[in-house]
Design a protein around this nucleic acid. Structure first.
Lengths: 213, 213
DNA sequence: GCGCATAAGCGACACCGTGTTGCAGTCAGC
DNA sequence: GCTGACTGCAACACGGTGTCGCTTATGCGC
């Protein structure tokens, strides 16, 4: 049924096709960032991309098809992860360095991230990040062997990825109010100590039952 | 320009108006939960509500106007917060009890929350929650006096509210995989210890620089 | 209860975005 | 250079939108 040869799966060679699709995606991203997703029509995209409207439908089923395709392209561009340090030898500075690298990468592609988030690609980013988190956790379990965790592992992974996404997207959306190094310190401190301690709460009583869920 | 007398601000008395608006909102929520926001048309809503389509436009500018209005109504219904215990006398059990109460409240209105989230009301929920968090922080600062925090307060508030929203919405969207009590323990443990410690990471090296951003 | 104000019903209208089709051109790649 | 494809163009039917003028009926205040 689909006249389109599944742009994601098989490789397209024809320069015209590549050129047209790229033009449509670029126009789409630009328009969404200007007006928001709902205010953008297929006509607008085709017009901005200087492509006939009918041609649009030869490549994408509709606006949302283009959206999914574009988000996946953008997320693929962001598919980069720094090599995690050996968890057995973590130091505060190591983790901060690592986080700073991630933040710098984010800052470099801030417009991309903002575009993805504006496109409603948050869930897809979270999904992508879950892959990274899973990898880290798997790595950790390999190195340290089986460890009892107070939280079910099936819960830590999605929560960790959501919390990380929350930190990064907040930072980006606020216009990166702190430089990467400073933000990295805040991030690691928050993830290390949790928000309660970071609020200066006296946790001595809280610690009474530490690790006994 | 707006023929509608601002339903949010001034009180409407006419039973016909109240009846019609409620019918439209209920139909809207039901349809969005069935098909998703984009697949719902004004025609559908009016039909389901057994209201003439023209009448719809006498009350709401368009679909998104109804959405905003509906989300605000739902969020207002959820405007409930348990009295926070004295932060100077927190114990683990106290906080868990408190969290469990919140989760029970969430569970009672799970369909409401899911509706809000399905409607894309996450940001509005987060905003609402920021109010609660701010209140708690203000309360804490009053009781304990000025305390140096390793994280800027202007950052903790939005992050705390996003992290809380992430926990709750994950729990709800996963179909409440753990009973409220158990989930409350996980929540408090995560917020107390942070995800690093909950992964069983050795934080002794991380702690070397504790509190020195 | 009664009359009045007004909300709701009804049908029609123009407008716009969508998705499709057939044909003619143009260009890339063998 | 030839062939097959991609693209441009024009037109079409369809459906959702937002509005209007008129009529009906329903709740409110006296």
């Amino acid at each position: 049924m689909a006249p389109r040869p599944e742009p994601g799966s098989e490789q397209v060679k024809d320069l015209r096709v590549i050129r047209t699709r790229k033009a449509l995606q670029d126009a789409f991203v630009a328009l969404v960032r200007e007006r928001g997703l709902e205010a953008v029509t297929v006509r607008d995209v085709a017009e901005r991309a200087m492509v006939n409207r009918a041609t649009f439908y030869r490549h994408f089923r509709d606006k949302y098809d283009l959206m999914r395709f574009t988000i996946d392209s953008l997320v693929a561009d962001l598919a980069w992860r720094p090599v995690p340090a050996d968890p057995a030898s973590f130091t505060f500075e190591d983790v901060v360095d690592h986080t700073e690298a991630v933040l710098n990468r984010l800052a470099q592609h801030a417009d991309l991230f903002r575009a993805v988030l504006a496109l409603g690609g948050g869930p897809r980013l979270t999904l992508k990040m879950q892959g990274f988190v899973e990898e880290v956790i798997r790595h950790r379990l390999e190195v340290l062997g089986h460890v009892e965790t107070p939280i079910p592992k099936g819960m830590i992974v999605p929560i960790f990825s959501r919390w990380s996404t929350a930190l990064w997207s907040w930072w980006l959306m606020e216009g990166m109010p702190y430089p990467p190094r400073e933000m990295a310190v805040y991030v690691v401190t928050l993830l290390r100590d949790g928000p309660f301690r970071c609020l200066g709460l006296d946790t001595r009583r809280l610690d009474a039952n530490r690790g006994t869920p």
